[in-house]
Design a protein around this nucleic acid. Structure first.
Lengths: 231, 231
DNA sequence: CTCCTGAGTTAGTCTAGGCTAATTAGCGTC
DNA sequence: GACGCTAATTAGCCTAGACTAACTCAGGAG
């Protein structure tokens, strides 16, 4: 429970991964963490017990790990730094939103609170980062939204892209080129589940694609003019 | 001589300290480095031999260490990052120039080349940082200037402040308040070496001070209207 | 009910980069 | 020329955080 010293870089990375894989409730397996962080399973077990000793995670042997309230708060504060940095990198430095992730990943551990606040002020306290992800507030609270994967949109339904979650830079760049960015209006023209082919309108243009990674695109369903087969 | 992997953070810090204490020519003692970096002497010996093995410093046992050409280049490139960051922190984020050093110290190791270039572009490729220090060019070349410590100015002589080198934040803040910043015009009204009292005009205002730390203020002597007792 | 399999843990090693304590090498003094 | 001071080096240890190899346990197949 005693956690006097500040979190090390690795500790922060584990907390972030834990949050991103399991959120606030779900528990995450050792192997999922190992894959995500590109480390071996023993490294994970080892770090988890240390984090458990500081009261940041709960770790039942052979049953995965889950963030405690205090761990979740830390994770959200790191996420906040990450997203503020990404927004800065894109909006002020003009870097490409499909490529800033790695930079933010490093800087989030290096930037002092003073500099972070100044950056946040400079970009005028945005609520969302360039991928459309909501930015936690300074106390670590995150706006909840109910979004669905683009691939789950029934044919005929339409919505607005809200988040891009993919980790594949190439794919993100392609999507960006196709106009599939946060804020874009999309309509599912046709779904052929057998062939795994999706035909959709993106801001007027038609796009045909397989489902590969399409669940990394989250949309907000539109209520109006719902002439699709909704339940 | 073999140096495949990128420099670690500590290695970079040692190179920077070596440059700042001994420049390109002079050799630096182990204890000076230990003091500057706030580590023990054995740690310094240890790191020096590693740097020597990578061909970045020359280290004769019990005779101090000196940068090699390649070490000097690395040091200057790090200095470049540091100074670009300080300039960004002051000019864009509006932080106080007497307080940005620590932040730059951390960020210089974290910022990618891509982000550094973008920052440099944003601040329009300055030649000097907010303390007046020249910024090395992208190939690690530093403009040479001939400046003298303010305390060495004979009475009657005047000049322009070019650099503030102090590491004491409080003192820097005081100087800043008194107008003793890069670009300020100063004239030495009177020097009383016995009492260690200096009386000077700074941008019109008169300032009386002891020599304490005054050699951290570097001025460029004016040639014109030299009615002081110059040699 | 036993056995196999695979996920997870334990044990032991490595590297970077610190540390303290003990030793050595010069250098100045007498 | 011996003495002692201080700077530097050596020796040995520590922590964070990784790794591999070897062991263990729980859950599904038979």
């Amino acid at each position: 429970m005693a956690r006097a010293r500040p979190l090390t870089r690795s500790e922060q990375d584990y907390l972030k991964a834990l949050f991103s894989l399991g959120g606030l409730e779900q528990s995450v397996t050792v192997s999922a963490l190992a894959t995500r962080l590109a480390v071996s399973a023993p490294s994970v077990t080892n770090m988890l017990s240390r984090l458990a000793a500081s009261g940041l995670v709960r770790h039942a042997p052979r049953a995965g790990a889950r963030l405690t309230a205090s761990g979740a708060k830390q994770a959200l504060l790191i996420l906040r730094r990450h997203r503020i940095l990404e927004t800065f990198l894109v909006r002020v430095l003009g870097l490409d939103w499909s490529e800033v992730h790695e930079d933010a990943e490093v800087l989030e551990h290096a930037v002092s609170d003073r500099v972070l606040d100044a950056l946040d002020r400079l970009i005028e306290h945005p609520r969302e980062d360039p991928h459309g992800h909501p930015i936690p507030d300074p106390r670590g609270r995150l706006a909840r939204r109910s979004l669905s994967p683009l691939a789950a949109l029934p044919s005929g339904a339409s919505g607005t892209v809200r988040e891009i979650r993919d980790r594949d830079r190439g794919r993100m760049a392609r999507w960006k080129q196709a106009g599939l960015v946060p804020g874009a209006r999309v309509r599912m023209r046709a779904v052929q589940p057998i062939d795994d082919v999706f035909e959709l309108d993106v801001n007027g243009h038609t796009m045909v694609t397989g489902s590969e990674g399409l669940d990394g695109v989250l949309v907000e369903r539109s209520r109006e003019r719902s002439h699709g087969r909704r339940a």
